[in-house]
Design a binder for these strands. Structure first.
Lengths: 146, 146
DNA sequence: ACTATAGTTGACGTTTACGTAAACGTCAAC
DNA sequence: GTTGACGTTTACGTAAACGTCAACTATAGT
């Protein structure tokens, strides 16, 4: 009876903080920190935190958000706007905007990184030359990296 | 006589902190901060800092290092190893190693960013779909970004 | 009852690269 | 002889995302 409690993954319907910490590769302190910041709100059994599947889902979203470079604040807003009643167009719009902003940032960042990589590669080959041919004039070193 | 004092740029042989700050687009606070960290050591006229051309060169190097993503600590090490007597193979070797480390980091970072960009682009197109076709099921939103 | 384990809270520490304010010195110009 | 521009030092503030530590509390097992 009540097969719904076991349809998913390993059938768990609630989790401890350490379970989730291990599953997601973060410390429990991190998860409590997210709670401090209002990103999750697990139930309590006494003082012990009990994470529902929904909480677990939120955590997953939070961590993906972090991977994508969103601030916790932005993530909170996205989640907050989601909660009231689903189908909130506002939330989708907000999230979309944030995604586009972030995308722009990342594209810029990538360009910067590419430039740095190019400079570094050139510097490296020059350094190698210097090392191969005994140190030449001291000044030529300055033109490399340091 | 003594034409050497004017061979370069605008012939200046010493600079004030604000001059350099303006030239390099940083605040004087930043330059003093670098001094705190032992990256530069301008002469003093009383308490006023007097930057030589060599100091100016160091600053240039520091700022390029920052652009390339080195920590001030690493930059300090590179500069420190340079100072004793030039032709220091140690310094070149150290710098080379740091460059290679940094290059690796950046390559990894770029890969991460590329992943994030891909995820974001997909998320964005999905969000746009949802917005175009009125909000469908609430669950499908979760699969997007937030 | 006693211990071990897990969990909790709060407060302060960490890192990086500065910003900002306070309180004061100095120097030339007016 | 004061105003203003610029300089100095010391020291605390900021932002982000936690880590670390201390001191409890709660629960489970023996």
């Amino acid at each position: 009876m009540n097969a719904r409690a076991e349809i998913d993954k390993d059938g768990r319907v609630s989790f401890s903080i350490t379970e989730l910490a291990e599953e997601f590769g973060v410390t429990s302190r991190t998860i409590r920190f997210y709670e401090d910041k209002g990103l999750v709100n697990p139930a309590r059994e006494g003082t012990t935190r009990i994470y529902s599947r929904k909480d677990r889902g939120r955590l997953k979203i939070i961590l993906r958000g972090r991977r994508l470079g969103f601030s916790l604040q932005d993530i909170k807003k996205m989640l907050d706007m989601y909660s009231p009643e689903s189908g909130s167009t506002d939330q989708l719009t907000f999230t979309l905007q944030k995604c586009e902003e972030q995308l722009e940032k990342l594209v810029t960042q990538r360009a910067d990184i590419n430039e740095a990589i190019a400079e570094l590669e050139e510097g490296i080959s020059q350094l190698k030359e210097h090392l191969a041919s005994g140190s030449a004039s001291a000044d030529s070193c300055k033109k490399t990296i340091a």
